[in-house]
Design a protein around this nucleic acid. Structure first.
Lengths: 157, 157
DNA sequence: CCGTGGCCCGAATTTCATTCGGCTCAACGC
DNA sequence: GCGTTGAGCCGAATGAAATTCGGGCCACGG
């Protein structure tokens, strides 16, 4: 993971369909070298894959909310079952398993407020293990376009 | 946005580097047709781009946290400035602008707990507009691999 | 019945991915 | 000092893919 690797990762985060030749040219290395580097990044699990970014509006999902939930008992199998089943629901974008007063944050999307409400009644109110949840509407979700490696500095410095 | 378009979006969410030929074959259409469809999805803004998925461990960011913050005054320019500047910080993955008791949720990553603490002291404690924030550690972050269009059903049904 | 436009197709061309033999250089042992 | 070894890089050659484009099919409207 030298600086060439970092640059590859950086550029592929900006444009995941960048051609190998174009990438090589950006870095000032030969296409064959670039290909080998990139393949190694895959094999080492540093690049885990590529995904198209899709407009939530176009997917008929303009309403977003964050649901914080507490479940009991907090046993391994209960936690794992909750994570797995909730992640699979089509309305769910992602699930954060948390330390603190909430056990989970669930990012959900829906067609409109009515569907959001129906979803919560069907999927959260009904579950035995959920002892409480709160829903907060998301006005906007901004994402950092690129995550580069953080330098190994001293936190004091 | 017929079912062929949905299938294209679906497959490119699973594998953003799927070749046009392979995609065409999956859908049972000609490569030229598939290319035209896909280009239209780009032009209409339905597919917004492609991003490599990168291991946070490999980027030296094994620690994740969710920071909920309240800012005052809740004026348009203050809100926008906060969103913009925070999203740009390298430790920040994404920023949710919220309705409810918290104004923002900020997903942050750091090398370790010490760096997380230093980051919060530097970037949150110092800001005038932040009147309070709480930090919760994220044990795990699961993501739904695919977001398909939600059907236009009745929420009661 | 006869355009017209939307959508699709397949062949041709250009560009790209991938392979592979060879080069350089630094580290190592003798 | 000197040969060996291995890692990493390069560029030409080959095969595959992206892209273009002329044309076919079909539903629709006059």
């Amino acid at each position: 993971m030298d600086e060439v690797d970092s640059a590859i990762v950086h550029h592929l985060q900006v444009d995941g369909r960048l051609s190998n030749r174009a990438l090589a040219e950006k870095l000032g290395i030969a296409p064959s070298t670039c290909l080998e580097r990139t393949r190694l990044l895959h094999r080492r699990g540093i690049i885990q894959g590529y995904k198209a970014q899709v407009s939530l509006r176009a997917l008929n999902r303009p309403v977003q909310a964050m649901v914080s939930a507490q479940i009991r008992p907090l046993r391994r199998n209960v936690v794992a079952a909750f994570e797995q089943s909730v992640t699979r629901l089509p309305e769910v974008v992602s699930v954060y398993t948390m330390a603190g007063s909430d056990d989970f944050l669930v990012h959900v999307t829906a067609q409109d407020i009515d569907h959001l409400h129906a979803f919560l009644l069907d999927q959260f109110t009904n579950r035995r293990e959920i002892v409480g949840f709160r829903t907060a509407i998301i006005y906007q979700h901004l994402t950092n376009p690129v995550l580069d490696p953080l330098p190994p500095t001293d936190p004091q410095g």
